[in-house]
């Protein structure tokens, strides 16, 4: 296979990954790494490097759209980024020393976990508890606009959320994915923030977290321009198209289909990891 053909196939695959990733909210990274490693036998370190950059591109590209809604909380985001960036640096450092087949197996399990989460029903539980001492000191309370008017909220269980964010950062740095699902869990489940605030703030954090580990990947030579070029261009294009098609109500079947594909890829990654083929 020539470089041209390889680049075109990867471009098309990344375009699809970016499109479906943006429609389902799962991000493209979870598909790109299996596509490159299982489909083309690309070394997983290169695949992670390329995926990390595409994660940054989607996060930065989507930011402008989220800003219009005015509900992301940059204080909560910035405070928790201390945890995610520390975790990301740790994860990227770990990736340097971890054997590729172990990374593949961990990747597989994280994929299954993400797929299960994506199918979970998202219901808005509004906890309007009083702000604790911690939350008040850190100004982690705010309000956001809804159809029923402004709703006030305050962050709960800050140590729990902070710890969960460090894990999310670690996974992101180790596997080169945005780990948006874990970030949303930390904010939604642990800190009891409104779901909309969690998702938009998570998008803000994904880019910064990925940048923290991308620095290490570039220094170590994991960022291959020839491979990253079609991946990044494809994902940007796909995510852009995805943001233009607003089919909010009909993403359910797409989400289920995507979850099935992810679980299939996950088992492939685990199998290839255990048998040492990756």
């Amino acid at each position: 296979m020539t470089v041209l053909l390889f680049s075109l196939i990867v471009l098309a695959g990344s375009f699809l990954a970016g499109l479906v990733g943006s429609l389902t909210g799962l991000g493209g990274g979870v598909v790109i790494i299996p596509l490159l490693t299982l489909g083309f036998g690309v070394d997983i370190h290169y695949a992670i490097g390329a995926s990390l950059i595409s994660v940054i591109a989607t996060s930065s590209g989507a930011a402008a759209a989220y800003v219009k809604e005015g509900i992301s909380n940059i204080r909560i985001g910035m405070f928790l980024e201390i945890a995610t960036t520390l975790g990301a640096v740790g994860g990227a450092t770990l990736a340097i020393y971890a054997p590729t087949h172990i990374i593949a197996v961990i990747f597989g399990f994280v994929l299954i976990f993400s797929a299960a989460l994506s199918l979970k029903k998202k219901e808005e539980v509004l906890v309007q508890a009083k702000a604790g001492k911690f939350a008040t000191a850190l100004k982690l309370d705010s309000s956001y606009p809804t159809a029923k008017g402004e709703i006030k909220y305050s962050a709960q269980n800050i140590p729990g959320g902070f710890f969960m964010m460090a894990i999310a950062g670690l996974i992101s740095g180790l596997l080169g994915i945005g780990s948006g699902a874990l970030k949303v869990i930390a904010m939604d489940h642990f800190m009891r923030l409104p779901f909309k605030v969690s998702t938009t703030t998570s998008n803000f954090m994904i880019g910064v977290t990925a940048a923290a580990s991308a620095g290490i990947y570039m220094q170590r030579g994991y960022i291959n321009p020839g491979l990253s070029m079609p991946v990044v261009l494809g994902v940007i294009g796909g995510a852009f198209l995805g943001s233009k098609i607003l089919v909010k109500s009909e993403t359910k079947w797409l989400r289920i289909l995507f979850a099935i594909i992810i679980v299939f890829l996950a088992f492939q990654m685990i199998y290839n990891g255990i048998t040492g083929q990756i």
């Binding site: 036998g41 290169y46 030579g221």
Partner: peptide
């Protein structure tokens, strides 16, 4: 380089001029 053969299968790290 469109018609040469890609070499991403084994990790060697990028040359230092790309780091």
């Amino acid at each position: 380089h469109g018609f040469s053969i890609p070499h991403f299968k084994t990790f060697r790290g990028e040359p230092s001029n790309l780091r």
